[in-house]
Design a protein around this nucleic acid. Structure first.
Length: 677
RNA sequence: GGGCCCGUAGCUCAAGCGGAUAGAGCAUCGGAUUUCUAAUCCGAGGGUUGGGGGUUCGAUUCCCUCCGGGCCCA
């Protein structure tokens, strides 16, 4: 509702400025006042117009306030400071709409959205860096679905790259394992952990003797070739590790719809199709001289054309060199295509521009019967339609932005500007470890390392925090708390609560930082359940629920529930009137409670903001603020002992509304709330 | 060499398209509950927003420059 009122306000202001001053196209900035006493919206508009109208800001503000007239939903406009216009809404009217959960329909853009996230190399256990990716991606999927979008979730699997090849080398040439032995290991528990250690050993083995790198090259070649023992082992390993990744993510309520694999990009000749189109469009050019001789290259946008000799200007040697540096080699002189080339083909497929499709087969079934499909060369006849979407978001860390930009430029150069515009690299920074955390893991630090604010994890060295280990540690810590608080509960129940709390803590932790911030991981912060954490927000909901449970009330009686239903018929009758809202929400003495209502009205506003800026951290902040305001409210107003029945009903309604919005915000972050805490 | 990101309280982080007295959590210190039981609340101290310049009525935010750190490409 808050967002809807803002739109209405801007619309009226625009009309007013046009009518009164003949001004068109004024950028109307709407802010949120620093304090609740100032109202619900603040307009620095008069400052903006001061020069244009050659008047003092204060004077303009006064004119606007005097002339704006009545706008439905708004109560008052007033001038503040040097020329701010503070706007007050009709509190009772807004509260009544929030109580019935009225959310004006949005214009939902047509077409499906594709979100690609996780994309973990299937050669070792997932670590905390992968968790950040998956949690950001999954939360963004939930945000989009909250906003009414249809979303496909894809997890790209690079099953033919060097990382898989390295583990194959480890098993075959260092561990000397047979295919049967590897199969046995893969059937055992946490095979991804086994691979984690093997992978670290391989790095050492390469360092021991450079000759060993030839084994790697041969292995990689065999895997790409297919139809041989090495390729079969690679497939066996990558599929087993992939299953482990899906299980790990399932623990966090993260699910996928489709797993496209690099092996199919190769074997179904996606690249060949893309290559033809890229050559035909002149996007790729063959270099017959220079340092990229024999390569097919793409020029960076803006440097597409060399200085034309037709204009009589000879390009100097330096310019020649510069333009060479701007070239992206897509196909190497030995004829092999690099990672970016395959990515271009894959992204043409995503937008339905390639003219080819994967084969599909069912791969993983979630407990809720949701099927996750995987790519294959010869698939099942009946399968869902993937790809050919209107919009894509790739959740990939900031180190890949160069490659991502190259793919976008390729699409644009092919004449698919529309697609390029709807291609978003959802970029975020890595998760590193604090020096203290690294030391805890048994890593010996140099003096230089100790002075750093963070140390990068390294899969190659086997140095990092595994996702399942972190989750286990969180569950153990939460379990300790739950056991102490609720010894009366059954074992199963306590385990369930501990798991919910652990997931809440982990997901919130990964979302509270804004994307460009490197997370310096520390067990102390991650295992905290107090303050700015997931459990703090979960606990606020539990407290709200306790009020209703102890009082023998159903929250749905006081406000529409989160499923969008209008509540029961008896509920509607029990709702309080706009007049009653006015009585309890008017005047400065009610500012504190009103602040809570206003925050509750903002959830869809925040969701829209998260999507527009691809920044889920705002939602975490919103949930925390709601919880914080609620806890203060909880402490200040003992509801069940309230003797004034009308006031009690109002307080219960307040608790019910905040509870609903908090549950909703947490659910959008993939966090559920335990029955008790 | 080219490009991108970061630098805010002791620590970890916020701050909407440039807006009002730069906010939280943790830590420290001091308080609160015979109550919907504290994974909570209230209060205190803590800041030259890395330095310097510029644009602006107004800069943590935009531009330039320097310092420090990270990443990518070459």
């Amino acid at each position: 509702m808050y967002r809807y009122l803002e739109l209405r306000l801007v619309e009226h202001l625009r009309e007013f400025l046009q009518r009164t001053y003949g001004l068109e196209a004024v950028n109307i900035v709407v802010e949120q006042p620093p304090k609740i006493e100032f109202g619900e919206y603040a307009l620095p508009l008069a400052f903006e117009l001061a020069r244009k109208l050659r008047k003092a800001p204060r004077k303009i503000a006064e004119e606007i306030v005097a002339g704006i007239g009545a706008i439905p939903g708004f109560a008052k406009f007033e001038v503040a400071g040097a020329g701010y216009i503070n706007v007050r809404v009709n509190r009772a009217a807004l509260a009544a709409e929030v109580a019935v959960d009225r959310r004006p329909p949005d214009d939902i853009p047509a077409g499906k959205v594709l979100v690609e996230h996780s994309s973990i190399n299937p050669n070792k256990a997932a670590h905390i860096g992968h968790l950040r990716n998956a949690i950001l991606g999954d939360t963004f999927v939930r945000l989009l679905r909250f906003a009414g979008r249809e979303v496909d979730v894809q997890n790209y699997i690079d099953n033919t790259g060097v990382q898989v090849a390295d583990v194959v080398v480890g098993f075959m040439h260092i561990e000397k394992k047979s295919r049967a032995e590897i199969e046995a290991l893969a059937a055992g528990p946490r095979f991804d952990y086994v691979c984690w250690d093997v992978y670290a050993r391989v790095s050492h083995w390469y360092d021991e003797d450079k000759v060993h790198l030839q084994t790697r090259a041969a292995t990689l070649h065999a895997i790409e070739e297919g139809n041989n023992e090495t390729a079969a082992i690679a497939d066996l390993i990558s599929v087993a590790v992939l299953r482990r990744h899906l299980e790990t993510m399932e623990r966090l309520d993260i699910e996928y719809d489709f797993l496209p694999r690099e092996s199919e990009i190769l074997h179904l000749h996606f690249w060949d199709a893309a290559f033809t189109k890229l050559k035909d469009a002149g996007v790729l050019t063959f270099e017959d001289s220079g340092k990229n001789k024999g390569c097919w290259v793409m020029r960076r946008a803006g440097t597409a054309a060399k200085p034309s000799t037709a204009e009589g200007t000879e390009s100097t040697e330096e310019e020649e060199k510069l333009s060479e540096e701007d070239q992206k080699v897509i196909v190497r002189s030995n004829g092999t295509v690099g990672y970016v080339g395959k990515d271009i083909a894959y992204h043409m497929w995503k937008f339905g521009l390639l003219g080819r499709d994967f084969g599909y087969r069912k791969f993983f079934r979630y407990p809720n019967d949701h099927e996750c499909w995987i790519s294959t060369t010869h698939g099942e006849k009946d399968h869902p339609h993937f790809g050919d979407v209107a919009e894509i978001y790739n959740v990939i860390d900031a180190r890949q932005s160069e490659a991502q930009n190259t793919v976008i430029e390729a699409l644009r150069a092919l004449g698919h500007g529309e697609a390029a515009d709807r291609y978003t690299h959802f970029s975020y920074e890595m998760v590193a470890l604090t020096p203290r955390c690294a030391a805890e893991l048994g890593y010996t630090l140099s003096e230089e390392d100790k002075a750093r604010s963070w140390i990068e994890v390294s899969g190659r060295k086997g140095f990092g925090v595994k996702a399942d280990d972190l989750l286990d540690a969180l569950i153990a810590a939460a379990r300790g708390e739950v056991d102490g608080r609720h010894p009366e509960l059954r074992e199963e129940e306590r385990a369930g609560i501990a798991t919910q709390v652990a997931i809440g803590a982990l997901r919130y932790f990964m979302l509270k930082f804004t994307k460009p911030s490197v997370i310096a991981f520390d067990f102390k912060d991650a295992l905290s359940f107090e303050g700015d954490t997931g459990p703090y927000a979960q606990y606020a909901v539990v407290r709200a629920s306790n009020i209703f449970r102890k009082g023998g009330f159903d929250p749905a009686v006081f406000c529409a529930d989160a499923d969008g239903g209008a509540g029961s018929a008896s509920g509607s009758a029990a709702r309080i009137s706009a007049e009653a809202f006015a009585a309890y929400l008017t005047g400065e003495s009610s500012d504190d409670i009103w602040e809570l209502w206003l925050a509750a009205a903002k959830t869809s506003y925040i969701v829209a903001q998260c999507i527009a800026t691809t920044e889920p951290a705002y939602l975490a902040k919103h949930a925390f603020q709601l919880a914080q305001l609620f806890n203060a409210f909880y402490h200040r107003f003992p509801i069940l002992s309230e003797t004034d029945e009308g006031r009690k009903k109002f307080l219960l309604t307040t608790a019910a509304v905040v509870r609903r919005e908090l549950i909703r915000a947490l659910a959008t972050m993939g966090i559920s709330v335990p029955p008790v805490m």
